[in-house]
C-alpha cells in the first residue's frame, strides 16, 4: 500500500465527495471540472506551508509509503509539552510525593509513635488472617511493586542521582536491567493485582461501618477503636488504591509495552504522563501502607508474615471479622488454645 491517510482526512474527503456527487451534473466535461477533478489551477502557487497546516491541526501529518503509520507524522511540536512535563513537572512532583510521604510518616511516627498492641485476655492466642495463597499473592505483587517502583523511579531520577555516582557505562547497565525488570515484572504484578481482586473483593465492599471508622479516624487519634470487618476502611482504601492504580498502571503500561498498537503519538505521550503520575501517587500510597503494616503498628506485620495474628489484636482492630469467623464455626479458623476437636 502506498500511503496511508488518517481516518480524519478520509472522512473529510468523503464528506466533500458526497456533497460534490450530489451537486455534479452528469456530463463528462462538467465532471472533470468539479471539485474532484481539479484542473487548471497553479499547483506551485497553492503549495501548503507549515504555518497553514499548524492552524488546522497541532501536528502535521501526511502520507507515507512504508507501513509504519506513525512515520506519517511529519512534525509534532507537542513533544515539547511532553518534555516539559517529563523534565520539569515530573521530577518535582515525584520528589514531592515520595519525600512528602516519607516526611509525613516520619512526623506521624514522631508524634504518635508506634501503635502498640493492647494487651487483653486473648493476647497470645493466634487467629489465621491470611492463608498461604493470599500471602503468596500479596508478596508476589508487593515484591514486584518494589522493583517496579525503584526501576520506575530510575527513569526519573537515575540520571540525576545514580549516574553521577557510578558513571554512564555502569549506569547504562543498571538502567538496562532496570528496564528489563520493569517490563518483565510488570506481568507477575498484573497477575498479582488480579488475584488480590478475586481474593479480597468481597471483603472490601465499602459499607456503613466504614463511615463510622473514618469518623473515628480509624483509632489512630484517640484511644477508642472503631469497629471493623475483615478489612477496615483504611485497608479498603489501600485495596482499592492497589486495584485502581494497579489497573491504570497495567493499562498504560501495556500500551507502552506495545507502543502505537492502539494509539498514536499523542496517545502515547498521554499514556506516559498518566503512568508516571499515578506511579508516584501509588508509591506514596504504598509507602504509607508499608509503614502501617510494619513500623507503624505492632502486630500488623504478622498478618502477612506468618499469616496468623494475635487474637487480641484482631479483636481490637477487626472485631466484626473475629465475631464472624467465630460464628461460622465455633472454633473459627483460629489455632491455638481453643483448638477445635475434630468432629
Amino acid at each position: 500500500m502506498r500511503r496511508t491517510p488518517t481516518t480524519f482526512r478520509t472522512l473529510i474527503a468523503a464528506t466533500i465527495l458526497t456533497a460534490a456527487v450530489g451537486a455534479s451534473s452528469t456530463s463528462f466535461a462538467q465532471q472533470t471540472r468539479d471539485g474532484l477533478n481539479p484542473t487548471g489551477q497553479n499547483p506551485t502557487a497553492e503549495s501548503v506551508n507549515e504555518e497553514f497546516l499548524f492552524k488546522q491541526d497541532p501536528k502535521i501529518t501526511g502520507r507515507i509509503s512504508i507501513p509504519d503509520g506513525k512515520a506519517a507524522n511529519l512534525i509534532q511540536p507537542a513533544g515539547r509539552d511532553y518534555r516539559d512535563f517529563r523534565e520539569w513537572w515530573l521530577p518535582w512532583l515525584s520528589a514531592l510525593a515520595v519525600l512528602g510521604a516519607i516526611a509525613l510518616l516520619g512526623l506521624f511516627y514522631f508524634f504518635r509513635g508506634r501503635i502498640l498492641m493492647e494487651r487483653g485476655p486473648d493476647t497470645g492466642r493466634k487467629i489465621l488472617r491470611f492463608n498461604g495463597f493470599e500471602r503468596f499473592a500479596h508478596w508476589m505483587t508487593s515484591s514486584c511493586f518494589i522493583i517496579l517502583a525503584l526501576s520506575g523511579l530510575n527513569y526519573i531520577f537515575g540520571k540525576r542521582l545514580l549516574m553521577p555516582l557510578i558513571g554512564a557505562d555502569a549506569f547504562g547497565v543498571v538502567a538496562q536491567y532496570a528496564k528489563f525488570s520493569h517490563i518483565y515484572l510488570a506481568w507477575p504484578f498484573m497477575i498479582g493485582v488480579a488475584l488480590m481482586l478475586v481474593l479480597w473483593l468481597k471483603d472490601n465492599i465499602p459499607n456503613k461501618i466504614d463511615i463510622a471508622w473514618i469518623k473515628a479516624f480509624g483509632g489512630f487519634v484517640g484511644d477508642k477503636h472503631p469497629s471493623a470487618g475483615r478489612f477496615n476502611a483504611g485497608q479498603k482504601m489501600v485495596f482499592w488504591m492497589v486495584i485502581g492504580f494497579g489497573s491504570a498502571m497495567s493499562v498504560t503500561g501495556l500500551m507502552m509495552i506495545f507502543p502505537f498498537a492502539l494509539t498514536d503519538i499523542t496517545g502515547m505521550q498521554l499514556m506516559q504522563v498518566i503512568h508516571a503520575l499515578i506511579g508516584i501517587a501509588f508509591i506514596a500510597g504504598i509507602l504509607a501502607h508499608i509503614y502501617i503494616g510494619t513500623l507503624g503498628m505492632e502486630g500488623a506485620y504478622d498478618a502477612m508474615g506468618s499469616g496468623k495474628v494475635d487474637l487480641g489484636w484482631a479483636k481490637v482492630h477487626h472485631d466484626l471479622w473475629v465475631e464472624q469467623e467465630q460464628a461460622k464455626n465455633a472454633s473459627g479458623p483460629q489455632l491455638g488454645r481453643h483448638q477445635v476437636p475434630a468432629e
Partner: peptide, 9 residues
C-alpha cells in the same frame, strides 16, 4: 561518562 569506567559494565 566514565566516572566508574568498567565497573558494572
Amino acid at each position: 561518562s566514565g566516572l566508574v569506567a568498567g565497573g558494572l559494565a
